[in-house]
Design a binder for these strands. Structure first.
Lengths: 236, 236
DNA sequence: AAGTGGTCTAGACCACTCG
DNA sequence: GAGTGGTCTAGACCACTTA
């Protein structure tokens, strides 16, 4: 199987990232240093970095260096949240964790997170508010093994996004996600928390989030109240 | 305002595309020919093409050449349709045009398509079926000026996608779109055509589609029945 | 064999940041 | 001014397609 040099370099760099050699938010070695380290020309390293930058794994800053993308960076606090106010105005987004407990993996959760049915899983409930208004109710499932010690208090302490906490406290970096959307009728907790009548239409967003090596580490079921907000997507 | 050479080349090539110098589905000149034509090195042309290929405007095929992306290509018949069966199986997708008539632009349509309120607009109604099952009901608004002569018969004749007809018959190439999604209760025609009860949740997808030069040429309101299907999106 | 895009190199110079 | 990423070049060679 033929693989060009720059992809092999990329693979090596991905492993370095996965192994934590370069921490989120910090700069990686300069292109010329990497070229020497890997024994290739600078242009080849550059092409590897190009691809990783296109995938939002690295961020280039001219004159300063190349940095490992981080959910701690305010610029990417809610990087995966595609919900936007209809009028386009900026809102203050705040995450309100409601509960955090251990449950047994159901069929779906086990399949998605590559666990056995009944394996311990952490379930986090949380509410997302835009300017105080409750807009998203999330149920978040995490493999217990990798998030040992996660508590409601820990989540509440932080003013940052969830992924930011996962990154800082558990060394777990979320790099990619898949979302599946459908319209459903409101029921149960979502009704109360989002203050909408039973049966009223909600946008159900199911998300699988992956870390390095395409390993799924989070499954999320979010109910979005799309009265004054919409899910935005660009196609090309 | 500084702009690197390869972006200027890209701009020239975009104009050539917009002017119809290179038709969809055909190959553009080779990199070396373009390098001579624009008086730059091959590497610079290459970088311009790289960006355009990343935006799905061009398609490279090693050994053959670089081709202008086309909606006539079966590989991109429903390029912008993100609805997928829950079980992942392939379905036969068929577009069933229902009506095609002239209407006056409402506020929203005028704003989105950059027209005056009351300007003539073509409204197409159509149903999308997956393996015969009605799944999407679309209302499609097109600036009448640019789609003169569009008739229901013309749409019915074609076994291809709408954008394919637009491209072949009107020289209008859809290259990019923005979608805004929300959950709504079913009402009116959508109820009957999708065979769902009044008020049942539907995914409302509003799409603005652009041609070269970021010119909006289509506004679409689609009601998606997401009982056995979901809207799929990748985040990174 | 000829022509296309794809990779890789080495070197020059530009734009930006920071001390 | 020194160091970083960003651009541009020229040339060599590889991989793929077609005839």
């Amino acid at each position: 199987m033929f693989s060009p040099l720059y992809r092999q370099i990329k693979e090596l760099m991905m492993r370095a990232l996965g192994a934590g050699e370069w921490a989120p938010g910090t700069s990686i070695p300069s292109e010329s240093e990497l070229a020497i380290r890997f024994g290739v020309s600078q242009g080849t390293v550059r092409k590897a970095i190009d691809e990783m930058a296109a995938e939002n794994l690295l961020v280039r800053r001219q004159g300063k260096g190349t940095f490992v993308a981080s959910h701690n960076d305010p610029r990417s606090f809610y990087r995966f949240l595609r919900l936007t106010p209809d009028d386009g105005s900026a809102r203050q987004t705040r995450s309100e964790p409601l509960s955090c407990r251990m449950v047994a993996a159901t069929d779906t959760v086990a399949r998605v997170l590559q666990l056995q049915v009944g394996d311990p899983v952490i379930l986090v409930e949380r509410l997302l508010r835009f300017d105080g208004e409750p807009v998203v109710y999330d149920e978040i499932f995490l493999s217990a093994e990798q998030f040992q010690g996660l508590t409601l208090d820990l989540l509440k302490e932080s003013e940052r996004s969830l992924y930011s906490v996962f990154e800082s406290e558990f060394g777990m970096r979320m790099i990619r996600a898949e979302e599946r959307l459908r319209a459903v009728g409101a029921e149960g907790r979502a009704c109360e928390l989002l203050a909408v009548p039973e049966g009223s239409p909600l946008l159900l967003v199911e998300r699988v989030t992956y870390t390095y090596g395409d390993k799924p580490v989070e499954w999320r079921r979010g109910c979005y109240a799309t009265g004054n907000y919409h899910y935005f997507n660009e196609l090309s």
